[in-house]
Every structure is written in structure tokens, then in C-alpha cells.
Amino acid sequence: MSDQEAKPSTEDLGDKKEGEYIKLKVIGQDSSEIHFKVKMTTHLKKLKESYCQRQGVPMNSLRFLFEGQRIADNHTPKELGMEEEDVIEVYQEQTGGHSTV
């Protein structure tokens, strides 16, 4: 019986991991920090939209990076291997420009 009891508790931990929340720091170019608590399985588009709304800027005017890689709207913290207190960097999107060649 103890084996049966242990097995469901392991499964519960697996389920808990799926719905687990982590805190992420979003740091802007001006070094301002906003902290977000997100589920591991939530699409990061929600975090990006919330950040842009707080900053009063359109979402397409900023780019969000985690460990140097651009974050897509459909990425989740779990897919990117994010952990508690990880940092997302935000930069002004640069458009235009010309070749110097």
C-alpha cells in the first residue's frame, strides 16, 4: 500500500510543476525593474502585453530577450528553461537604418 501512496504523490508533484508559478524580473533599458509572477505554462505574450500596457507603449515597439534570445509570443517559461528570479531584458525595437557599404 505504501507504494501506491507514494506513486500518486509523485504524480501530484509532476502536476504541481506544470502549474507552478515563478517570479520573473523584467528590466528596461533605463534599468527599471518590474516583477511578474507567471505560470510555467503561460505564453509569455501575456507578460509582454502587461509590461507594455504599464509602460504605455505599443508591444511592437519593444523586444524582449532572455539569455540573449528573442522571446516569441508563444514561448512559455518552461520551454525556455526559466527559473525563479530570472531576468528578461527589454530593448527599444530598432527599425529602419541603412547599409554603410
Rank of each mutant, 00 (worst) to 15 (best):
M1P: 06
M1W: 06
M1N: 07
S2L: 12
S2N: 12
S2E: 15
D3V: 08
D3K: 09
D3I: 11
E5F: 10
E5C: 00
E5R: 12
A6G: 15
A6S: 11
K7E: 13
K7L: 08
K7N: 09
P8L: 13
P8G: 08
P8H: 06
S9P: 15
E11V: 11
E11G: 15
D12Q: 08
D12M: 00
D12E: 10
D12V: 12
L13R: 13
L13S: 13
G14V: 13
G14W: 10
D15M: 07
D15V: 12
K16R: 12
K16M: 12
K17M: 10
K17Y: 10
E18L: 10
E18G: 14
G19L: 12
E20Q: 13
Y21C: 13
Y21L: 09
I22H: 05
I22A: 03
K23M: 09
K23G: 06
L24C: 09
K25S: 09
K25Q: 07
K25T: 09
K25F: 03
K25R: 13
K25D: 00
V26N: 00
V26G: 04
V26Y: 02
G28S: 15
G28I: 15
G28C: 01
Q29L: 11
Q29E: 01
Q29T: 05
D30S: 02
S31M: 00
S31D: 00
S31P: 07
E33M: 05
E33A: 06
I34T: 10
I34F: 15
I34Q: 02
H35C: 14
H35I: 10
H35D: 09
F36N: 01
K37M: 05
K37I: 02
V38Q: 01
V38G: 01
K39P: 07
M40P: 12
M40R: 10
M40N: 12
T41P: 07
T41D: 00
T41S: 12
T42S: 09
H43V: 12
H43M: 11
L44M: 14
L44H: 02
K45I: 14
K45P: 02
K46V: 09
K46G: 02
L47C: 01
L47A: 01
L47V: 08
E49A: 14
E49I: 04
S50C: 15
S50W: 11
S50Y: 04
Y51L: 01
Y51D: 03
Y51N: 05
Y51A: 02
C52R: 05
Q53K: 09
Q53Y: 15
Q53N: 07
R54W: 00
R54N: 01
Q55H: 09
Q55K: 15
G56M: 11
V57S: 05
V57G: 04
P58G: 09
P58Q: 07
M59Q: 02
N60D: 12
S61N: 03
S61D: 05
S61Q: 07
S61Y: 14
S61P: 02
L62D: 03
L62P: 02
L62W: 01
R63S: 07
R63D: 00
F64W: 04
F64K: 02
F64S: 02
F64Q: 06
L65K: 00
L65E: 01
F66W: 11
F66K: 01
E67W: 10
G68D: 04
G68K: 01
Q69S: 12
I71E: 01
A72Q: 06
D73G: 02
N74I: 08
H75R: 05
H75Q: 12
T76V: 01
T76Y: 01
T76Q: 01
P77A: 07
P77F: 02
K78I: 14
K78P: 04
K78W: 09
K78R: 15
E79M: 14
E79Y: 15
E79L: 11
E79S: 06
L80Y: 05
G81I: 04
M82C: 04
M82Q: 01
M82P: 02
E83V: 13
E84F: 13
E84R: 13
E84M: 00
E84V: 09
E84P: 14
E85P: 00
E85V: 09
D86I: 02
D86T: 10
D86Q: 02
D86W: 00
D86F: 00
I88R: 02
E89Y: 14
E89M: 09
E89N: 11
V90Q: 02
V90L: 02
Y91H: 11
Y91A: 06
Y91W: 10
Q92H: 09
Q92A: 10
E93A: 08
E93W: 15
Q94Y: 12
Q94H: 08
Q94A: 13
T95I: 13
G96S: 06
G96Q: 01
G96L: 04
G97W: 00
G97N: 00
G97R: 04
H98M: 09
H98E: 09
S99L: 09
S99E: 08
T100K: 08
V101W: 07
V101G: 07
V101F: 08
